[in-house]
Design a protein around this nucleic acid. Structure first.
Length: 114
DNA sequence: ATCCTGACTTGAC
DNA sequence: GGTCAAGCCAGGA
């Protein structure tokens, strides 16, 4: 990472939003990216989340899935099953690496947090 | 400095 | 309505 200018870097911003995700809810990378103003660069959100795993803060990265509600990032967790287990622990049903009733559990920061 | 890759998304065919 | 291709920004080789 870099020291950046004077404000928090893109990553810190991502962490903030991710930490604000309510329990039992999920969001998508694109939604966060759009909320941060970097709409279209959803990849960066995922990239930031990779760094989140080395952060000391509790980043519920498992609450972030792709637009399809699919657990694309489970591979990057300590164990591929961790993501699904964590979600299920919060009452979110995951089936075939996909969040059940995703559209209902979807949490849009731009809409809810805005 | 150039090229490649990546936890994504959207538009076109 | 599913599949393919391109765009996006940042970081590592």
């Amino acid at each position: 990472m870099e020291k950046k200018k004077d404000d928090y870097s893109f990553f810190e911003n991502v962490f903030e939003v991710v930490k604000l995700i309510p329990v039992g809810r999920v969001t998508s990378y694109g939604a966060i990216a759009e909320y941060l103003g970097s709409k279209g660069s959803a990849r960066m959100v995922g990239w930031a989340l990779i760094s989140s795993h080395i952060q000391n803060k509790n980043i519920p990265a498992y609450r972030v899935v792709n637009r399809n509600g699919m657990l694309t990032g489970k591979q990057h967790f300590a164990t591929p099953n961790a993501m699904q287990e964590n979600l299920e622990r919060e009452g979110i049903k995951v089936e075939n690496d996909q969040v059940v009733d995703f559209k209902n559990l979807f949490w849009d920061p731009r809409k809810e947090l805005a």
